[in-house]
Write a protein that binds this DNA or RNA. Sequence first.
DNA 1: CCCTGATTCGC
DNA 2: GCGAATCAGG
Length: 187
Amino acid sequence: MSWTDERVEMLKKMWGEGQSASQIAKELGGVTRNAVIGKVHRLGLSNRATAASKPEAKAKAAPKAEARPKAATKPAEPAARAEAEPAAPKPIPARKQIIPAGQPLPPQPSANEISPEALAKVSEIEKKAKKLSLMELTERTCKWPVGDPATENFWFCGLPVQQGKPYCEAHVGVAFQPMSSRRDRRR
DNA sequence: CCCTGATTCGC
DNA sequence: GCGAATCAGG
C-alpha cells in the first residue's frame, strides 16, 4: 500500500481526532502503526498530548549511532546538541485541542437489577480478577469496576474480555441483560 | 503483557 | 519517502 491522498487525509483526520497510531493503521489497513507514526512525523504533525511524551528518549534512541556512516550531521556541534529541536519553527507553547475520549468507563451496575445467578458468577470471578489499575486497562481487559473509587479498595476486573465486548464473560453477563430478563425485574 | 508515540537508518 | 526495529514509558 502507498500513501495516496485519500489515505493521507484519513490519517490526518484520525490523528487530529486523537486516534492512536495503531487504531489508524487498523482502519487504513495495509500499514502498521509504525508506518503511521512515521508518516505522521514526515507530515510534520506530531506532538499531540498523549500517553508517551518523553523528551529524553530522543538522545537515547540511537543504539547503532556509535559511528555514523552517513553524513556527520553537524561537526560543529558535538553530542551536546543531540536532542535539540528538529528543524520545525513551530513555537506552539500552548496546545489544548483534542481531548480524546479514551476508554469509556462502564456504568456502575445496580445490583437489584441483576439476576442472582449472574451476581454469584461475578462474586466468584472477582476473586480471580487481575485487579488492574486504570492505566493498565486495555482493549482486551475487562473494564468492570470493583469497589469504591473513593477508597484504596478499588480496581478493575482485568480478566480477558469477550470478543468485541468491554468486559469478561462474567461481567458481560451482568452488563448486558437480555430484554426478556429485564421485564418485571422490580418485585 | 498489553499498549503508547519517538527515533533512527537501511532501503 | 517509507517503515521495521528499537527505545522509552504508562
